[in-house]
Amino acid sequence: MSRKALKMDAKEAMREALVSPYMVTIILGVITLVLSVVQGFLDIWQGMIENAGAYDLGQTGAFAASSIIFMIISFILSTIIQFGYQSYCLKVANRDQTMSYGDLFGSAKYLLKALGLTLMMGLFTVLWTLLFIIPGIIAAYSYSQAIFIMVENPDKGVMQCIRESKEMMVGHKWEYFVLELSFILWQLLGLVTCGLAFIYVHPYTNVTLANYYNAIKPKTVVYEEVSMFE
């Protein structure tokens, strides 16, 4: 399927979606903004401690504990909404009538797997990057379909999703890179509009990528039962 066809189908699917992709993206943005604001307060707190001069064990301990707690909460919540948003976009691409705002938090049901997949993808990418930047980039593209695989098949294990993603992306990495690159002007539009355009650009991009996942994933063969007397 051509890039043009993938994008046109994404636009059509967004128009037909029972649950507005723009509202789901706004909810995603609000959650991300809240996490950023909290992180900003922690940064200010850290600056105040550093500028105080005198070492305050109580202040430093409270800051360290708060930072660790927030880091854990942020990682968990970010993982939930990342997987949830991918699940929602895949449903939009598939014209799935079961889509809902709750999809954004649906990955909480398999949270440990989602966290494990996020950690393993990050670890493998970092390890390949230590060899050189290019192998790290190639690894990232190899694992690019793993989240879609898991949100579509939550019963699959972490390593199974990574392995299947690597198999799916054989011969498709450059094609996927070009597809992502084709959104560069849309991304720039999002930046120059102070993020407002991302309300359209983000779901458009992700539904297109969901279409690409559907285009390259192995097709299930359905065998019809045939009577020997026919």
Results as ranks from 00 to 15, higher is better:
residue 162 I to F: 07
residue 194 C to R: 04
residue 112 L to V: 15
residue 120 M to I: 15
residue 223 Y to L: 11
residue 210 A to R: 00
residue 158 V to E: 05
residue 133 I to E: 02
residue 160 Q to V: 08
residue 181 L to R: 10
residue 37 V to R: 04
residue 156 K to L: 14
residue 128 W to L: 11
residue 9 D to L: 10
residue 56 D to S: 14
residue 59 Q to Y: 08
residue 119 L to K: 04
residue 152 E to A: 08
residue 213 Y to Q: 04
residue 53 G to H: 04
residue 22 Y to E: 06
residue 143 Y to Q: 10
residue 73 I to K: 02
residue 216 I to R: 00
residue 205 T to V: 11
residue 64 A to V: 12
residue 5 A to G: 02
residue 215 A to D: 13
residue 7 K to Y: 11
residue 212 Y to H: 13
residue 127 L to V: 15
residue 174 W to V: 09
residue 108 A to T: 12
residue 44 I to V: 15
residue 224 E to S: 11
residue 62 A to I: 12
residue 12 E to I: 05
residue 195 G to Y: 02
residue 91 K to H: 05
residue 79 T to S: 15
residue 204 Y to I: 02
residue 196 L to Y: 10
residue 117 L to P: 06
residue 227 S to Q: 03
residue 97 Q to I: 14
residue 92 V to S: 06
residue 32 T to R: 09
residue 154 P to A: 12
residue 180 E to G: 14
residue 60 T to F: 05
residue 20 S to D: 12
residue 230 E to T: 08
residue 7 K to W: 09
residue 68 I to E: 04
residue 24 V to R: 00
residue 39 Q to W: 07
residue 137 I to S: 06
residue 48 M to P: 01
residue 21 P to H: 06
residue 29 G to Q: 07
residue 92 V to L: 05
residue 86 Q to C: 03
residue 183 F to C: 11
residue 146 A to R: 01
residue 5 A to R: 08
residue 209 L to P: 00
residue 58 G to M: 05
residue 201 V to P: 00
residue 158 V to S: 05
residue 122 G to H: 05
residue 135 P to T: 07
residue 3 R to G: 04
residue 127 L to E: 05
residue 192 V to W: 14
residue 86 Q to I: 08
residue 124 F to P: 02
residue 155 D to G: 12
residue 97 Q to E: 11
residue 30 V to Y: 06
residue 170 V to M: 03
residue 117 L to A: 04
residue 2 S to C: 08
residue 23 M to Q: 10
residue 85 Y to P: 00
residue 44 I to M: 15
residue 92 V to R: 01
residue 70 F to E: 13
residue 79 T to F: 06
residue 211 N to C: 10
residue 90 L to F: 01
residue 41 F to H: 02
residue 21 P to D: 10
residue 58 G to D: 14
residue 23 M to N: 02
residue 96 D to L: 14
residue 44 I to A: 15
residue 188 L to M: 09
residue 103 D to E: 14
residue 5 A to M: 07
residue 170 V to E: 15
residue 6 L to D: 00
residue 190 G to A: 11
residue 89 C to Q: 06
residue 58 G to S: 13
residue 165 S to I: 13
residue 26 I to K: 03
residue 125 T to D: 10
residue 106 G to M: 01
residue 187 Q to R: 12
residue 204 Y to Q: 08
residue 215 A to P: 02
